[in-house]
């Protein structure tokens, strides 16, 4: 009985992840997109170590963009890449001390992929952490 109780508790912690992220992006992430203008679309997910999330976005010709990847501390430093439509890497934050934002300027309008990856656990833990990860896109007029 107690074992069932504990298992249910652990399941609740996992499933309530989305509830814990309520307001996370607005409070913790949006202020950091300035001086760029946030494109207003929430791209937020609850991820576990090793998980990948992707954002398909269009960068317009001649416009400046900022990508800001915001995550809860318990997930560690999150990796992100900017890929072209053939999945070639344009930028990888692992080559720049895992910074959480970067600016871009494109001379041509194109469809791009922002790929975010939560680092895998280095050791087995009794409870796998989960946390909010948001991808924000800002542009300059």
């Amino acid at each position: 009985m107690r074992t069932i109780f504990i298992i249910l508790m652990l399941g609740l912690i996992n499933f309530s992840g989305f509830a814990q992220c309520k307001g996370f992006t607005k409070k913790e992430c949006v202020p950091h997109i300035k001086p760029f203008t946030y494109n207003g679309q929430l791209n937020m997910a609850v991820l576990n170590p090793g998980d990948i999330a992707e954002l398909i976005v269009t960068f317009y010709k001649g416009q400046d963009y900022r990508l800001f990847v915001c995550s809860q501390e318990n997930l560690g430093k999150v990796e992100f890449k900017l890929l072209d439509s053939d999945r070639n890497t344009i930028f990888y934050n692992k080559e720049h001390d895992l910074v959480n934002y970067w600016d871009f300027h494109s001379n041509a309008t194109q469809q791009l992929i922002v790929q975010v990856r939560v680092p895998a656990l280095e050791e087995d833990l009794p409870v796998v952490p989960s946390g909010c990860v948001s991808i924000l896109v800002g542009f300059k007029e």
Partner: peptide, 29 residues
């Protein structure tokens, strides 16, 4: 999505988001 290259990759991606330009971006041109 046409940008997902293969089934193996698709199985590792937990979430895919799609963004469209904000009206502000459209109006600036």
């Amino acid at each position: 999505t046409s940008l997902v290259k293969d089934t193996v990759h698709a199985n590792r991606v937990k979430k895919i988001f799609y963004n469209v330009p904000s009206p502000i971006e459209m109006s600036s041109v």
